[in-house]
């Protein structure tokens, strides 16, 4: 079965099609949810949230098109897990999550869609390794030591790449370039 056929069946209310998506993307969705919730919540919570992501897919099937469903599921998985974390008043162990922007930056007055597009461009324009580190940390909420271990880097190298990523994002959102130090 192709993804387009599975989605068409899902839209018609076929629960077997939902099973097809779980077989195909369950490990991916579970890994994202686990990456964000592990350490703060139990395995049962991870399973619960992973199931909620596929319930969301079931309910929103009518408005989806068979294009980048993996990306869609990834986003829903991340946002659902973060929401769960917020409900439990849990903080994320992230390096400098706050980005300070000038008041008259480009994102003032933008719609969400426009802002998302700008953020996407900024992330895609980062050098490959910087992008991977940036997304592992700020998208999947992996800690610096975990990223360093997975990529075989020193923690300080990860931190300096994150700094560059933050500055790139800030520049894209404000249109203002800053003089960077070494890194």
């Amino acid at each position: 079965m192709t993804e387009a056929i599975a989605l068409a069946k899902l839209k018609s209310g076929d629960q077997e099609a939902l099973g097809w998506f779980i077989d195909r993307y369950g490990a991916y969705v579970g890994a994202i949810v686990n990456s964000i919730l592990s350490g703060a919540m139990s395995r049962a919570d991870v399973e619960e949230v992973t199931a909620d992501v596929f319930i969301a897919l079931w309910r929103s099937a009518g408005k989806l098109i068979p294009l980048n469903l993996k990306g869609y599921l990834g986003r829903i998985a991340r946002n659902t897990a973060l929401k769960k974390l917020r409900e439990q008043r849990q903080e994320l162990p992230l390096e400098e999550d706050m980005l300070v922007l000038e008041e008259d930056g480009l994102i003032e007055g933008m719609t969400l869609r426009e802002r998302d597009s700008l953020v996407r461009e900024a992330v895609l324009s980062m050098p490959e390794l910087d992008r991977e580190i940036f997304l592992r940390h700020y998208y999947y909420c992996q800690t610096v030591p975990v990223i360093a271990e997975k990529l075989g880097l020193k923690p300080n190298t990860v931190k300096s790449r994150l700094l560059r990523g933050r500055e790139k994002l800030r520049q894209s959102l404000t249109g203002i370039e800053a003089v960077m130090g070494g890194g």
Partner: peptide, 11 residues
């Protein structure tokens, strides 16, 4: 702005 929130719409 929170970077984690800026990435909420990323697919």
């Amino acid at each position: 702005v929170r970077i984690t929130e800026l990435l909420n719409g990323l697919e």
